[in-house]
Write a protein that binds this DNA or RNA. Structure first.
Lengths: 314, 314
DNA sequence: GGTCACCGTGTTATCGTCAACATGCGAGAA
DNA sequence: TTCTCGCATGTTGACGATAACACGGTGACC
């Protein structure tokens, strides 16, 4: 910075003003400084700036696992949104509940300005630290005053899926739910129950989001079940295999609807009818909410409505 | 730090020595300092340390897309390995070739100590910056003196897959390759050609790694083709659908082998025979190689041999 | 007897940047 | 004229940590 200042014939403070876009710089001076920066290949030193300002322009992403396609998609959306807004993104993974507290500590040590939490939040919520100085946005979580919320309206998506299946006239709609303790799984299950209306729904089957768990769980589906709403696409993949192995055709014998609309779902057999989450919008909204919180605002919880994508499986 | 020093009755320098694990500290003094740190809840300020030392203890990951399951798995492996070694990880995405240079600039501005590149490297290699001060490790790339290399032996995996198919006595083995310009795709194609031996192989089909592209490409497979090696599992998913739509049974009519062994592959229909990449080992190796380069070493290129996982599709 | 390396700790200078205050100047008001 | 004000710019002093050096005493070695 001193070299740039010398080359432009100004003080370091003026270079700082140019770098930070202060309006109180004469256009000619600004041009001279910019020319000097370009010719010297000057790049600002983030650590020095962070030391002086107390901000790092870095946000953290705490994610439980990247094994689910949904989390991967969210990570990409968050990374892109953060980059556009001038923030760097540092990623930490936290498998298991006690790892969450440790992950927060690592992020805090890192000096991030705020963090986005992508987790099975009803479990993780307990480990969320007190407000402290860390701005937080949690994706898919019950409302909590300590942090910002961004989520898909899982229940609405589940109602749409269940209603679509019910309209097929296949009798009761079965549900293969996500793991206990997951907010998203609980909401999707709630939507399914609500759509069942007065009719008592059949017992719920349960998996852990993985295709393998879907395969196992769907094996418990009774022979007379003719409509199945699966809480995510990957479990639906496993369920499709289980049905096929038992000689049951989809959609003729059993209609199946998934959730997420992962990229592969259109190439399942048959192509999967599913509920599409807009991961890009969700990721961008999470970053926006976090940036607002870092700036001292506390925007309202944002809820995005998913849409049903009808393909061949139902 | 000054508060800790005052509470422990020592100088700031001694606190620094305790924090950095210097051996030249009297055990009693060390204990006093640690007690002071604990009671004051002291946490080191990374930006200040980075300013003084010139190191950030942060590594970057430059990734083209997280839409492929392989990249997601690698990201997770790298994140975990970095965390274990005391490095933070910042992620930048770079879609398209010109974005790569920009992504490097962003990483450099961030002040990372080094970076791992996860990309279709033959294209990205052109954009890789001169050695400069940024240590680099590129995953799946042709040898280049400017950076470290870590890779799977794609050709060996492809040879194993092709040999397995050939041993089935289905005649010539067809290949659905990855996109042009991808190092991994080229290597897998090379392995397939080598395994064909003296027999001239059939023309290659080509996709872009996505299931949708696999579906399209497999439509061009001639009716008499009875063995197919697909360059990744997701394209194999699309190919399985295309074959099914044409009434061809797998494995009875056509035997299919994939590559990667993503988690879902065991739940494809039929469960996919595929070549397993050890993403965790690859990610850990990439971080190790990068840390070594940051430390001034230049370890040799590391090549991991994948293994064939035989399931029902071949 | 002299040189040297080491012990555990303190003192000082420094890393690159930016906020606060200071300064000199010219335009307009009194 | 003189005073006041706002503008563009300069000067100074942190921000929190650590590297380099200093300290006086001691044992190993030539």
């Amino acid at each position: 910075m001193a070299d740039v200042a010398a080359a432009a014939g100004v003080s370091g403070q003026t270079v700082s003003r140019v770098v930070n876009g202060s309006p109180r710089v004469d256009p000619a001076t600004r041009a001279a400084v910019e020319a000097a920066m370009a010719s010297l290949g000057y790049r600002m030193h983030r650590a020095a700036r962070a030391l002086r300002t107390g901000r790092t322009d870095t946000i953290g992403l705490l994610v439980s696992t990247l094994a689910t396609v949904g989390n991967s998609r969210m990570l990409q959306a968050v990374a892109d949104a953060a980059s556009v807004r001038g923030y760097a993104l540092t990623v930490v993974t936290a498998r298991g509940e006690d790892a969450v507290a440790d992950a927060f500590a690592r992020l805090h040590d890192q000096g991030v300005d705020g963090a986005i939490v992508l987790n099975e939040a009803t479990a993780a919520a307990r480990a969320v630290p007190a407000p402290a100085d860390l701005a937080l946005v949690v994706v898919d979580s019950p409302i909590d005053a300590r942090y910002g919320i961004v989520q898909t309206d899982h229940a609405a998506g589940a109602r749409a899926a269940t209603a679509h299946l019910a309209a097929l006239g296949r009798g009761r709609v079965w549900h293969l739910a996500g793991p206990e303790g997951s907010f998203a799984a609980a909401e999707r299950e709630r939507g399914w129950r609500e759509a069942a209306g007065a009719v008592p729904p059949p017992p719920v089957l349960r998996g852990d989001w993985s295709a393998a768990s879907g395969h196992v769980a769907a094996a418990a589906l009774p022979a007379d079940a003719r409509a199945l709403f699966v809480a995510n696409d990957q479990m639906a993949l496993g369920a499709l295999r289980a049905l096929s192995e038992r000689g049951r055709r989809v959609p003729e014998d059993v209609a199946v609807v998934g959730f997420d609309d992962v990229a592969d779902a259109a190439d399942y057999r048959p192509p999967l009818t599913t509920v599409r989450q807009d991961f890009d919008a969700l990721g961008a909204a999470a970053v926006d909410a976090l940036v607002a919180r870092i700036g001292g605002d506390a925007p309202e919880a944002l809820v995005l409505t998913p849409t049903l994508v009808v393909r061949a499986s139902a």
